[in-house]
Amino acid sequence: MAKIKSIEDLRKVAKEHRDSIELLVRENDPDGFVIVKVAMATCSIAAGAKEIFDLISEHIEKRGINAIVTKTGCMSYCYAEPTVEVTLPGKEPIVFGDVDVFKADEIIEKYIKNGEILEGIIPLNYRTAESI
């Protein structure tokens, strides 16, 4: 990695990163590429997030879905851990709570494959610094 020497370089790294995701989407499946994030803070992992992360990663591949599965820190919904955020192409991200093995399967089969709305969606309950 070349060292960042200026604000311009920072912008470049940011752009390259965004482009790499876009490229991933374009090359794989422009209409169906899915982004899955699993909250993996200590407490999420204690609630079972690691198993859910492994399971979703495995099944996404097995079932031939074009997606990236990535981990994040705390999504802040302690009452509903483990939590999983799914972004379908062209849609707003949706967070599912209390995800166990069955729920994970349902998310893949029903929401990711067919866009079918499931129970257990956590409504977005905050504004970001950018929006105010």
């Binding site: 990163h17 909250a39 610094a129």
Partner: peptide, 27 residues
């Protein structure tokens, strides 16, 4: 009704980016 009392400043990236990839923070 969705409650929007919360504003995320300190937690702005928490739960949104992969903490193990600096590129995501730079983005």
């Amino acid at each position: 009704m969705v409650n929007k009392t919360q504003i995320r400043i300190a937690l702005r990236n928490c739960g949104l980016i992969n903490p193990e990839r600096i590129e995501e923070y730079i983005s």
